[in-house]
């Protein structure tokens, strides 16, 4: 599995991806610095708002989409998946290696700049910890979902963006029971709880806010293994 992991990881880290997403991370830090330089009356609330609006709504899901959907999606589309599929390797190990590679590259790309941005707001250590925890949780959930999406559909980036905008954006902000089914609702809830801000969107316990996104990742992982086992390979 180590060989697979190394291979997937090397394929993920391209100059184009890293520079594009690195620029987004830099933008997050600059926004944090700008917020910290202002004289807002509620630095914690402003910080939570920044992490919510820029991090959990845009930067985290888009970055994870770019990496996770490509890990299996690109070899599936260009035909090189056959060179991995034709090996005596359990399908779950293939998927686990792909997920580990997606997480290895996605987590530092999003969590570090978001945590730095949170620190730059001057809202205190609680916000930094909450940002790190909620971004990590979101990345894990989205990595599972987008790994499956990359294998399931062609042009996964387009479908993934539609999911982020329509499902995570619209459903998560609609309130009510439907918002329980969006990753963003739970990660926002966790962020607010840990940072000491007001609850947003859904009223769930911290344990539920952590458990449901992880459950989504586990289900997506199982679906990816099933898909890889049953689909035709080019």
């Amino acid at each position: 599995m180590t060989a697979l992991y190394r291979m997937f990881l090397a394929a993920q880290v391209t100059r184009g991806r890293m520079s594009g997403l690195g620029a987004l991370g830099l933008l997050a830090v600059l926004l944090g610095v700008a917020l910290g330089a202002g004289d807002g009356a509620d630095p914690v609330g402003d910080g939570i708002s920044l992490v919510n609006t820029f991090g959990l709504s845009l930067f985290v899901p888009v970055t994870t989409l770019v990496f996770a959907s490509a890990v299996l999606g690109e070899p599936n589309e260009d035909g090189t998946l056959a060179y991995l599929w034709l090996r005596p390797v359990a399908r779950w190990r293939l998927v686990a290696a792909a997920l580990a590679a997606a997480l290895t590259v996605s987590l530092p790309t999003v969590v570090v700049p978001m945590a730095v941005a949170a620190a730059a707001t001057g809202a205190g250590g609680a916000l930094v910890a909450a940002t790190a925890a909620s971004c990590t949780l979101a990345t894990v959930a989205y990595a599972g979902i987008f790994l499956w999406l990359g294998l399931r559909v062609r042009r996964a980036l387009v479908w993934g963006l539609a999911y982020i905008l329509v499902w995570e954006g619209f459903v998560a902000t609609s309130g009510g029971t439907a918002s329980l089914l969006a990753v963003r609702s739970h990660t926002r809830s966790l962020l607010a709880r840990l940072a000491g801000g007001p609850e947003q969107l859904v009223e769930v316990s911290a344990a539920t806010a952590v458990a449901l996104p992880i459950a989504a990742a586990v289900v997506a992982f199982a679906l990816t293994v099933r898909r890889l086992t049953r689909q035709d390979v080019a």
């Binding site: 394929a11 090996r87 005596p88 359990a90």
Partner: peptide, 20 residues
């Protein structure tokens, strides 16, 4: 039975390789 691939080798038709 993926284990069977220990005993099988395939040269597929597609030209794509891991280019890097």
């Amino acid at each position: 039975h993926p284990e069977l691939f220990r005993r099988i080798g395939l040269v597929p038709q597609q030209e794509a390789l891991f280019e890097g």
